[in-house]
């Protein structure tokens, strides 16, 4: 090699858009892109295109996909019902100890999901804190059921929705809420008819994020709910299972999940872009 050229020759459009990226930032940034994208490139390169049809047409795949979509949808709905009010409390209620509460309820974001699974088992397992009573009084056991999958996914994904909605609530000016209150609307009416419509984009973004996280949930699900086709074996569990039996099938299933996650992400960005441009 004779002389090193700058890694990226700026095209006129980029040049107009802003200052040139200094090399000291460009190199690690390029490395970051490689770290994030090379594994996905490898996944695509190993895709068994010829056999993908047979792999994806297998009944277990449809079963796992359908179960995943149902569970992630249920977890998202549950998160909306519980999470939007929690976000409002964190953003607006001015209660003492809100900071501590926020830290505690968002702990699952940084917690390894498998820890969540163990914790859920200790709470709702057949000998768990609550589970023992559920079993003794009602004959209800939660582990190994689809309900357990939804609970595990909700535990892991709910904080994403709460954080997103709370951020939007904090950013939204309170003027309209206060005006509604001055005009005699009670707090529930104000929340429903004034606050909620104004933060709707944040709620949608939070719900999409929550859905994507629930769709990918593995650790808490396998620990708490177990793995059984049609009942608890969601796509991530099916991928892990396929990896031990037929790595090609695992690659095909992984790509399907990548595609689904991309759809969610594009939906999120479309919404976000619409908000920024609108």
């Amino acid at each position: 090699m004779t002389r090193t050229r700058p890694p990226v020759r700026p095209r006129p459009a980029e040049h107009r858009a802003g200052p040139r990226v200094p090399l000291v930032l460009a190199l690690p940034a390029a490395a970051a892109v490689l770290v994030l994208l090379l594994p996905l490139v490898a996944l695509v390169s190993r895709a068994p295109w010829s056999g993908a049809g047979t792999v994806l047409a297998a009944p277990e795949v449809g079963q796992a996909l359908w179960l995943s979509l149902r569970c992630a949808t249920a977890a998202t709905l549950l998160s909306l019902v519980l999470g939007v009010p929690l976000a409002w409390v964190l953003a607006r209620a001015d209660l003492p100890g809100t900071g501590v509460l926020r830290a505690l309820v968002t702990l699952p974001v940084v917690l390894p999901p498998v820890v969540g699974g163990v914790a859920l088992l200790m709470l709702l397992g057949r000998r768990g804190l609550l589970g023992a009573h559920l079993d003794a009084w009602f004959g209800v056991t939660v582990p190994f059921t689809t309900v357990a999958v939804v609970l595990a996914e909700t535990f892991v994904a709910l904080p994403f929705l709460v954080l997103s909605v709370e951020g939007t609530l904090r950013a939204a000016p309170r003027g309209a809420d206060e005006a509604a209150a001055v005009l005699g609307a009670d707090r529930w009416y104000t929340f429903r008819r004034v606050t909620l419509p104004r933060v709707a984009p944040g709620v949608v973004a939070g719900a999409v994020l929550c859905f994507a996280r629930a769709l990918g949930e593995f650790g808490a699900t396998v620990t708490f709910a177990g793995s059984f086709p049609g009942t608890t074996r969601t796509m991530p569990l099916a991928i892990q299972e396929a990896m031990e039996r037929d790595p090609d099938a695992a690659v095909a299933l992984s790509l399907l999940l990548v595609a689904l996650s991309l759809v969610a992400l594009v939906a999120l960005h479309g919404r976000w872009a619409g908000r920024v441009l609108g």
Binding site: F228, Q240, E241
Partner: peptide, 10 residues
């Protein structure tokens, strides 16, 4: 015998 398992462990 045909068993009726509730979970397949890894």
């Amino acid at each position: 015998i045909t068993p009726t398992p509730d979970t397949y462990e890894k």
